[in-house]
Structure formats: structure tokens, C-alpha cells
Amino acid sequence: MTTILVTGGTGTLGRWVTARLRADGHEVRVLSRHTRPYAVDLRAGGSGLDAALAGVETVVHCASSPRGGDEQAADHLLAAARRAGVGHLVYISIVGTDRVPLGYYRTKLAVERRIEASGLGWTVLRTTQFHDLLVSVLGGLAKSPVLLVPAGVPDQPVEVTEVADRLAGLALAAPAGRVADMGGPEVRSLDSLARAYLRATGRRRTVAQVPLFGRTYRACREGGLLTPERAVGKTTFEEYLTQRFGG
């Protein structure tokens, strides 16, 4: 039986990774800011991190925040993992970190590079956006009478439970470096995804495409968020919507 630490183990992805690994009979420690006995703020580090990593063979690093602090958190985690003799660190990243000049994406890429240079055995998986995130964004946009989306931007959402299955499998294998990206089964325009969301939730909104400007918008229009050659996900956006909202 392998002892595995999942950072962000109560989050959207981490809780599913934890469940998959425990179902396979492994000892899983959940690290998050508020979950005992391993309640640790990775951005601050501290002795609690060393205690959480004692005897751990593999770390699955799911903790992340678009509000900042990921690089400091990675530095603390990597230093503690080296002290503890961790053999394998698995990191979840995002398709497009090296193509889309968003601040959060640049941070994810910086963390990738820290892991690669850490001296630990490592595996990095990049995936496209989760269905859950897309629904959260569309839900916010749908508060207005007109649902505005960036014109001409494609997306390729993927089911988080399928990503969890992939991460759990990687955690139980040998360090593999940067593995093949994982994308959802369909490349879709944002306006078509917005209309599917409105149908599933029974909301009546006009969907309007708005042209934007700048390097980030251009990178997204050019497919920076996509990995069409790795459309290995099974669950479509409509299937996810049916599971979540019924219909």
C-alpha cells in the first residue's frame, strides 16, 4: 500500500483524486488549509508540512489559487518533499500555459519549471478547462439579461472525474515527466457552450459574441486553450449538464 499526500484534497479535483486512490486501498493524506490533521497553508510552509509529508512516497499537487501564491507554495512543498525523501510528485497544470499570456497561466508554467528542476521524480499533466469551471463562469455571465462571450474563442471542456482517474493512475506509476495532454471530447465555440448551458438551466438570455483585443484574446482565438489531437475525454458538455441539472 502506498502512502500518498494530495494537496488541495478537498477541492474540485483533489477530492475526486483522493476518493479514487482510497478506493484502490491506498493511504491518502489530505492537505488543505482547514482540514485536520494536515491543516497547512502551503504559502506559509511551516512544521505542519513536514509532519504531513513524513513517510509519504508520492505527492499529488492539486492545490492552486488564481489569487496568487502558487509559486511560494510550490517552493515550500518541494523543499519539504526533498527533506522527507518523497520519490514522486505529480502536478496538475493547464493546456496553454506556454501559449496564453494570462498571469495565472504564467504562474502555472513557473511552477512546472520549479518541479522539473527540483531534483524529485516528477510527472506533469496538462488538461483543458473543467466542465465545472465553465459552468461557474457562464453562471456569472448569465446574471445579465444578455450573456456576453468573447467572439471566435473555442474551448474543449473536460470532465473532472476523468482527470482524477488519470491523475490517480499517474500517481501509482513511476515518474514520467511531462505526459501527453488531456482534453475533452469536443472542440466547441463559447457561444454554443453558452446556449447549451442556458437550455439546461432553463434560463432565457440572448447570447452575444463580443470581439476583444490584446495578446491573450488572440492566443485564445488561435486555439491556445485546446489540444484537439488529445481529445481523450469521454463526457460531453451536454452529458455533464444533464448529470448536474437533470433533463
Rank of each mutant, 00 (worst) to 15 (best):
V187H: 03
R126I: 13
L53E: 00
L170H: 10
D155I: 15
V160P: 08
L172I: 02
V111R: 07
V179Q: 07
L133K: 12
L53M: 00
S136G: 10
A171M: 13
A52R: 07
V160S: 13
L147C: 02
G152T: 04
V6L: 09
A23W: 04
Y38N: 13
F213S: 08
T7C: 11
A176R: 04
R20G: 01
A194D: 10
H131Y: 07
Q72T: 14
A173K: 06
S93E: 03
R166I: 06
D24L: 15
L102K: 03
T35G: 07
A74V: 03
L5E: 13
A151I: 04
T7Q: 08
T35E: 08
D75V: 09
G85R: 04
G14P: 10
V153L: 02
R83L: 03
Y217S: 04
A52G: 03
E57R: 15
T97Y: 06
K234Q: 15
G247Q: 08
Y105E: 13
E222Y: 06
T7Y: 12
R203W: 07
L77P: 09
I4L: 15
R83A: 14
R33V: 09
L148N: 06
G96Q: 02
S144H: 08
V6E: 00
A164W: 01
L148Y: 11
Q156C: 12
Q129V: 12
A180M: 09
D181I: 09
G183P: 14
V179D: 05
T201M: 14
Y217G: 01
D165I: 02
K143G: 14
R114E: 05
V95C: 12
G96C: 02
V232H: 08
G14L: 04
T7V: 04
V207K: 00
G119A: 02
